[in-house]
């Protein structure tokens, strides 16, 4: 799939922002006053920047609000609703904290809604049977694990962040390993796509047109897949291993910040791969993957 910068930024930034909101919401001894203001300002800046970035990939941004209409069936619509609810409820909770009032149940509700927002984002991809690499429970699991890791890093929870980073590393490693096999497991081949399998082995002979088209630009992204293995290594190190190491050093504010930067850069790389490596079944019709 085409790795659109708007979508990569959106999933990364909003993942971090909502992850931070989760930890702020469940904190039994939450920060108050200006400290609370600073934490919530960071969370809101990240989440809102992500949501703003997502609107850049729309063909008609002027109609973006219509995306709230079909929450009964559409994960994209559910995500929009959950994001607004999560930001609204967390905002109310934060408002209380500013004045030293911790309405704990409101915090829990905000945390749950933030978690659900990240889950809904992941479900947009996981629901697509047409992209076997994504059509799997591990897609929301990894999105949630990374969001919670990033949130724990942002909120300065060293032990929890370390455990979650380790978990994320293991999950990401397995997702790459298993993901490489999912297209073959899906059973969709050129033979099933054309129905011509019974009489022999079908092969694309020539394309329907000489130029490119929307489908090929959008679903069949092959540039730089050849560097995938190197990028996977870079992503895994930056996203999980290096932050894990940095967290164990003294000077938590300095090295913690470095860990956060490294983690964010790693997630951006991993997200780029998430899209660039995903093969849509329509590529079969064009003799491509």
């Amino acid at each position: 799939m085409h790795p659109a910068p708007s979508i990569i930024l959106f999933t990364t930034l909003s993942g971090l922002g909502f992850g931070l909101l989760v930890w702020l919401g469940v904190d039994p001894t939450p920060p108050t006053g200006w400290v609370a203001f600073a934490f919530y300002a960071i969370a809101y800046a990240l989440a809102l920047a992500g949501l703003a970035a997502s609107s850049f990939h729309l063909g008609r941004r002027d109609r973006a609000l219509k995306a709230f209409r079909q929450w009964r069936t559409s994960w994209l619509s559910r995500e929009a609703w959950l994001a607004v609810l999560a930001l609204g409820v967390s905002g109310l909770y934060a408002l209380g904290l500013l004045f030293g009032l911790a309405l704990q149940p409101l915090g829990w509700l905000g945390a749950a809604l933030s978690l659900a927002t990240v889950g809904a984002t992941a479900m947009i991809y996981a629901q697509l049977r047409t992209v076997p690499r994504w059509h799997h429970w591990s897609t929301p699991a990894l999105f949630l694990a990374l969001s919670l890791s990033g949130g724990a890093l942002l909120s300065g929870r060293v032990l929890i962040a370390s455990v979650l980073l380790l978990l994320s590393a293991a999950l990401q490693f397995w997702v790459w390993y298993d993901g490489d096999r999912r297209f073959a497991r899906s059973g969709t081949t050129l033979a099933s796509a054309t129905g011509l399998g019974e009489r022999g082995t079908p092969r694309a002979l020539f394309p329907p047109h000489t130029g490119s088209n929307y489908l090929l630009d959008e679903m069949v992204y092959v540039v730089a897949r050849r560097h995938a293995l190197k990028l996977r290594a870079i992503a895994l190190v930056l996203m999980t291993l290096l932050p894990l190491l940095l967290l164990q050093l003294p000077l938590p504010h300095f090295f913690g910040f470095l860990a956060l930067l490294s983690h964010a850069a790693g997630v951006l790389t991993a997200r780029w791969l998430f899209f660039a490596e995903a093969e849509h079944v329509v590529g079969l019709y064009y003799g491509k993957r």
Binding site: M1, H57, L58, G59, R60, R61, R63, A64, K66, A67, S74, L76, I124, Q127, L128, R129, T130, V131, T188, A193, N213, Y214, L215, E218, M219, H280, V281, V282, Y285
Partner: peptide, 21 residues
């Protein structure tokens, strides 16, 4: 009512939908 998000084209296995640029 279309916002041009392209998700329907992603969901179609046949490549039957194209976003008009």
């Amino acid at each position: 009512a279309c916002i041009g998000c392209g998700l329907c084209a992603w969901a179609c296995p046949y490549g039957a939908r194209e976003l008009d640029l």
